[in-house]
């Protein structure tokens, strides 16, 4: 690991100022991904600005009937929060499906959103990767890509976003509160993360110095009927092969509204807007669920070793929709 200075920011303004002053600085949250990437040599900051005490840890109901989650809130506190459990169960489930108890106690909400892909090539600086060394190439396309993207990828990158939490947030349409050099703004989910295109080194739309200060959940009453289902090789402590987050508003056998996002399929938590619109007003039947899933997956461009993800996502999506409908 390269030597670095450690600074603890007292508030968000000084944190942002510290980063704008020091171009080789990075924010440190729970450190569960960043410290690892530094040890691997993938991240080489000259300065770490600890923001765990600069941003809020609070989780409180917001004026609009939603929930405001401080960026420094630990994943485990988020999942254990009674409002999250009652009104956004898929978010609690998604967070609980991620990593392990120890990691969830460390990881912050802001940091979770900004964790980086676990593609093997990205994590090995002795190998080419357009994400860690732009222009060096993407060996995953011809090499190992079983766990990588089937949709929205580019010739320069087939990585997936690893977060479970982000999938639920994308489905819920959360807003990410950001403070930057130019002031504060909100970025809607999905929309924080970007597709790789020809700049796969950029995971998100954030600019240098931007600090996530909070995540706000909208009031979405029907999200109390929601579920996160993660498919993984090992029964626990494993990244998703694929995952789905679904909230369903159904009455009298008809879908009034729904929210669907997919994990493990793209460089971003993938909001399944095509499936959502196909289902609005449709009968809540397995046939309609399958039709909607197929519509969404028609855009998939799997690689040889991850083609199985297409039927897998379809099966899981239909299953979760059916479970929520019954």
């Amino acid at each position: 690991m390269k030597p670095f200075d450690y600074q603890r920011a007292a508030d968000t303004r000084s944190a942002v100022a510290a980063l704008s002053r020091q171009p080789e600085a990075m924010y440190l949250g729970g450190g569960t991904n960043l410290v690892d990437l530094m040890r691997l040599g993938v991240a080489t900051p000259a300065v770490l600005v600890d923001v765990t005490r600069a941003t809020s840890e609070a989780i409180e109901e917001s004026s609009g009937g939603g929930l405001l989650i401080g960026a420094a809130a630990r994943n485990s506190d988020l999942a254990a929060h009674p409002v999250v459990r009652h009104r956004y169960p898929m978010l609690a489930q998604a967070v609980l499906a991620g990593a392990s108890g120890q990691i969830r106690n460390m990881a912050t909400v802001g940091g979770n959103l900004l964790q980086r892909t676990r593609c093997s090539y990205f994590q090995d600086i002795a190998k080419p990767c357009n994400k860690h060394r732009p222009g060096s190439g993407c060996p995953a396309r011809e090499g190992d890509h079983r766990n990588l993207a089937i949709i929205g990828h580019s010739s320069s990158c087939v990585a997936t976003h690893p977060s479970d939490m982000a999938v639920a947030l994308a489905a819920l349409g959360a807003s990410v509160h950001v403070e930057g050099v130019e002031g504060t703004r909100t970025v809607p989910m999905p929309g924080l993360h970007r597709l790789p295109g020809d700049e796969p080194e950029r995971d998100t739309v954030l600019e240098p110095g931007d600090l996530i200060t909070a995540v706000e959940l909208p009031a979405l009453p029907y999200a109390s009927r929601s579920r996160y289902r993660k498919v993984r090789d090992r029964a626990s402590f494993a990244f998703a092969v694929v995952s789905v987050a679904v909230a369903l508003d159904e009455a009298d056998g008809v879908v009034r509204d729904c929210r669907i996002a997919l994990g493990g399929v793209a460089h971003v938590p993938w909001r399944a807007t095509l499936a959502e619109s196909a289902l609005r007003g449709a009968p809540a039947t397995a046939e309609e669920f399958t039709r909607a899933a197929d519509l969404e997956l028609a855009g998939a461009r799997p690689l040889p070793d991850n083609a199985f993800k297409v039927p897998l996502v379809r099966n899981v999506l239909v299953r979760v929709l059916s479970e929520l409908a019954s």
């Binding site: 093997s120 190998k127 090499g143 190992d144 090789d233 090992r234 626990s236 402590f237 990244f239």
Partner: peptide, 29 residues
């Protein structure tokens, strides 16, 4: 159910060289 060291043909090494990628049974299994 889990264990498999993947040989990377292009680079000639075992690719999934850590305990997040090389799965051994966890308690839940």
């Amino acid at each position: 159910l889990f264990e498999e060291s993947l040989m990377d043909r292009e680079f000639g090494d075992y690719l999934n060289r850590d305990l997040a990628q090389y799965h051994v049974a966890a308690c839940a299994d």
